[in-house]
Write a protein that binds this DNA or RNA. Sequence first.
DNA 1: GCCAAGTTTGGCATTTTTGTCAAGTATTGG
DNA 2: CCAATACTTGACAAAAATGCCAAACTTGGC
Lengths: 100, 100
Amino acid sequence: MISTLSTHKQVQIIKALAHPARLEIVQALVTREHSVSELQTIVGGDLSTVSKHLTQMRKAGWIDCKKHGQHVHYRLVCKCLPEFLECVENIGTNRSTCDC
Amino acid sequence: MISTLSTHKQVQIIKALAHPARLEIVQALVTREHSVSELQTIVGGDLSTVSKHLTQMRKAGWIDCKKHGQHVHYRLVCKCLPEFLECVENIGTNRSTCDC
DNA sequence: GCCAAGTTTGGCATTTTTGTCAAGTATTGG
DNA sequence: CCAATACTTGACAAAAATGCCAAACTTGGC
């Protein structure tokens, strides 16, 4: 299982989720798409900060967006996020011999 | 699928792999365990730097270690790493409609 | 066209992460 | 016990990430 991606690209993708606000955002997007201001109410902070988080995750490839009037709707691109997070869950709950 | 872990803990786990050297290290550990100096020959840089990367990943829960004479052998704790990386692979190869 | 709402971008100070050197701790072989 | 090998820890400078403000941009309604 050798990656076709450069290490740098893999790191970019992983790093895109390695932040509390960004993690909360993708978790919110599992359910359904959201506009930037909706996501702001979830994660708090400045709207411009939220926008930058979204840009970073979009460039990494986790999400994409579509204009919908004045709003921009962001949504998850890949359905594998839950499996990704399940692995994180296994690590965090100390299942050393997990058979995930 | 609501996490039992705090966001902070999840981020700590993800962040532990969000670095080129650390990613190369865990990928090397998929095959078999390695000592710190073996890992140094793979990722380069100072031995103390490698040691610190290992400490960070151990605290996150990805790896553990055992003393073996003068050497310290590090190994992966969880077998789910390949699935984790496969998700990264899917994102990076732009399979927007991936069914992973 | 003009204004307001929603979003993005630029600039910059603050914080966090990183990497190296030096010093410290263990363990083994002689 | 001594010295060498393997690793860890502390301190600190350099680099990267973060967050906020202000300004710019875009779209829809009047």
